[in-house]
Simulated assay, not measured.
Amino acid sequence: MSGAIASFCLLAIGGRELSAGLPITPMLFFRSLISLTFISLVLCFIKEKSLIRVNRLPLHGFRNLVHFAGQYFWFLAMGLLPLAEVFALEFTVPLWTALIAALVLKEKITLRKSAAIVLGIFGVLVIVQPGVAMFEVGALVALAAAVCYALAHTAVKSLSSTEKPVAILFYMSLLQLPIALCFALPQWQWPQGIQWLWLTLMGLAALSAHYCITRAMLSTEVTTVVTLDFLRLPLIALVGGLLYQEEVGLSLFAGAALMLTGNLINLAKPAAEKPRQADKQQAAVPDRL
């Protein structure tokens, strides 16, 4: 989880550093290109073609369309809001996922999920402060990113029953590359100088974040992973304060605490229920990459 937290923070810093000089769509194109190159080299080295065989290519396509939209909104929000506020609003992803899974995958809305959703809504209201920031473009963009990530996460939950994690990761880079290219062409711009370094770091950080969270899910309980994941919030708040002189109010941490409580309630299991198996834990991997 330390590796995952560091990777997510590096993604955010890279997005902020590139936001002033490189449009988002070319940035996403080169990031996907770097990720695809790296994972292709790894696959060629281990010579395991079976790892990337897929059975449901259309669902991969849908997942990557909404995931690309989520990435676009996430990086756009990085230039509009303090980094900590973007991360805090991103933590609504499990709540949106619960709602979408109930509609699409016919999962039941239990009392625990209902409590989590209510606490999550209150957490968002505390952070964005109705009447003050509710209609700020940045807050709405960050929430749009969370909804898109929730749609992508629901697709991953479905794909994980038939596809290997490496295949999901490989086709994420492969399918998003032409999508990013189509949107990047009207505002095409070649990276310059240190921008290549940030793009390379971001491409590798996206892969390492996914790998680290997957390993964490397989090594311990989901509740532990989710709790540790919330440490990104104070860490990115510290980074924002030190590097970008961003001020973070108490309301942000109060709202994030409500969302954390909601997520933990949602993940809580009755004492009589057995812990999840590793394959079910894999399906719960956050899809923010």
Rank of each mutant, 00 (worst) to 15 (best):
I52V: 15
F38E: 04
G61T: 07
W96K: 00
E48H: 13
R215S: 07
T200F: 15
A237N: 07
I117D: 02
L65E: 00
D279I: 14
A272V: 05
T220V: 12
L119M: 08
S35Y: 14
M217K: 00
L199C: 09
E163R: 08
K274P: 05
A88L: 11
L267S: 08
K280T: 06
V285C: 15
I121Q: 00
M259F: 04
T110Y: 03
F91I: 05
L11Q: 11
T200G: 15
L51F: 08
A283R: 14
S50L: 06
S2K: 00
P58Y: 08
A184K: 07
V225W: 06
L258C: 14
H67L: 07
T227Q: 05
T223Y: 02
I117R: 04
Y171L: 12
G241Y: 05
M259C: 09
F73W: 09
T200C: 15
E85H: 04
A180F: 06
L238G: 04
K113Q: 08
L103T: 06
T92L: 14
A139T: 15
T110W: 03
L260D: 02
Q282M: 15
R63K: 10
E136A: 14
L57I: 12
L65H: 02
F8G: 04
F62E: 00
Y211L: 13
F253N: 01
P130M: 03
A272F: 10
D287T: 13
S173N: 15
L250D: 04
H60Q: 11
Q245K: 12
V239F: 08
A257G: 09
G193F: 10
K274V: 07
G138E: 03
I46C: 12
S251H: 13
M1T: 02
A184T: 03
A155E: 00
V54I: 15
A115H: 01
V66S: 04
F87P: 01
Q189P: 00
M1F: 07
L199H: 03
V54D: 03
L125C: 10
Q282P: 03
S35A: 15
V126Q: 02
